[in-house]
C-alpha cells in the first residue's frame, strides 16, 4: 500500500476512535458539566450574568493589547539590537526607566490623556494605555543581541536585504521561542492587570474580570483563583515546547 494511503488510513482510524470515545464519554461529561454549573453558578449567574460581559470585555482587551504590544515590542527589540538607530542608548535606557516607574505615578497622567482623547471608560482607551510593554521590548533586545551575530546580518546585506528584509527573513524565523515567551508574559500581565483598569474603567458594566471578580472576594476565593489561573496555564502548556527549547537559541553553530 502506498505510504500516503497508509497515513490517510491511520488518520481515519484516529478520528473514528476519537469520535467513539467522545460519544462514550457523554454521560461523564454531562456529570462534569452539572458539577461545574453547581460550583460556578453563584459567580456565573451573579447580577443577570454580568460575568459574561466581563469575560467578553476581558477577551477583547487582552487579545487586542497583546497583539499590539507583542508585535511592537519584538520589532523594537530587533531594531535596537541589530540595526543602526539614532539615540539607541537613550531609547534603551528610556525603556528600562519607564519600566521602573510605579503605576501610581503613571495612572493619573494616563487617565488625563485618555480622558482628553474622549476614550475614558472605554475599552479602546484601556487597550491603548496598556499596549506599551517595555518588559517584552527589553527581553527581545537581550534575545536578538545574543542570537543574531553581525556576520549573519552582513551576509543578509550582501544578499541585498534591507532592514525590513533582514527582520522578515532572519529576525522573525529566529524568534519563535521569543514570541512564545513574550506572548505568555504579555497575556499574564494583561489578564491579571488591576490598577490601570481600575482607574480607566469606572462603570461596572464595562469592567473586566480582574476587577469584576472583586465582589466575590471572601466567598469563593479558591474557585476564583482557579478560574483566573486556567487560561494562563493553558497558554503556558501550549507554548511550553518552544519556551523549553531555549529563549535564546543561537543562529550559528561554531
Amino acid at each position: 500500500m502506498e505510504i500516503g494511503a497508509q497515513r490517510r488510513n491511520t488518520r481515519l482510524i484516529k478520528v473514528t476512535l476519537f469520535l467513539i470515545t467522545l460519544v462514550a464519554s457523554i454521560p461523564f461529561l454531562w456529570i462534569l458539566r452539572d458539577v461545574a454549573r453547581m460550583m460556578f453558578a453563584p459567580i456565573v449567574y451573579y447580577d443577570n450574568g454580568v460575568f459574561f460581559t466581563w469575560l467578553k470585555n476581558t477577551s477583547i482587551f487582552v487579545f487586542a493589547s497583546m497583539g499590539i504590544s507583542v508585535a511592537s515590542c519584538i520589532t523594537a527589540g530587533f531594531v535596537l539590537a541589530v540595526l543602526d538607530v539614532p539615540f539607541r542608548r537613550f531609547l534603551l535606557f528610556s525603556t528600562l526607566a519607564t519600566m521602573l516607574i510605579p503605576i501610581t505615578a503613571m495612572a493619573m497622567p494616563l487617565y488625563v490623556m485618555v480622558d482628553r482623547l474622549g476614550l475614558n471608560n472605554t475599552l479602546l482607551g484601556l487597550i491603548l494605555a496598556s499596549s506599551y510593554f517595555p518588559f517584552g521590548a527589553f527581553l527581545s533586545y537581550l534575545y536578538y543581541s545574543s542570537v543574531l551575530p553581525p556576520d549573519l546580518v552582513g551576509m543578509g546585506r550582501i544578499d541585498g536585504l534591507g532592514d525590513f528584509g533582514i527582520y522578515r527573513h532572519l529576525g522573525i524565523p529566529l524568534s519563535k521561542s521569543l514570541i512564545s515567551v513574550v506572548t505568555f508574559f504579555a497575556f499574564v500581565g494583561l489578564w491579571n492587570s488591576y490598577q490601570l483598569p481600575r482607574v480607566l474603567l469606572a462603570e461596572p458594566s464595562k469592567s473586566i474580570m480582574s476587577i469584576g471578580i472583586e465582589v466575590f472576594y471572601g466567598q469563593g476565593t479558591t474557585l476564583i483563583a482557579l478560574m483566573m489561573v486556567i487560561p494562563s496555564v493553558l497558554l503556558y502548556l501550549a507554548s511550553q515546547r518552544t519556551i523549553a527549547r531555549g529563549i535564546f537559541s543561537g543562529a550559528v553553530k561554531e
Partner: peptide
C-alpha cells in the same frame, strides 16, 4: 509612539 504616549509624556 507607545513609549512616548504611555511612558515619557505621563512622567
Amino acid at each position: 509612539a507607545f513609549m512616548f504616549f504611555c511612558g515619557i509624556i505621563p512622567i
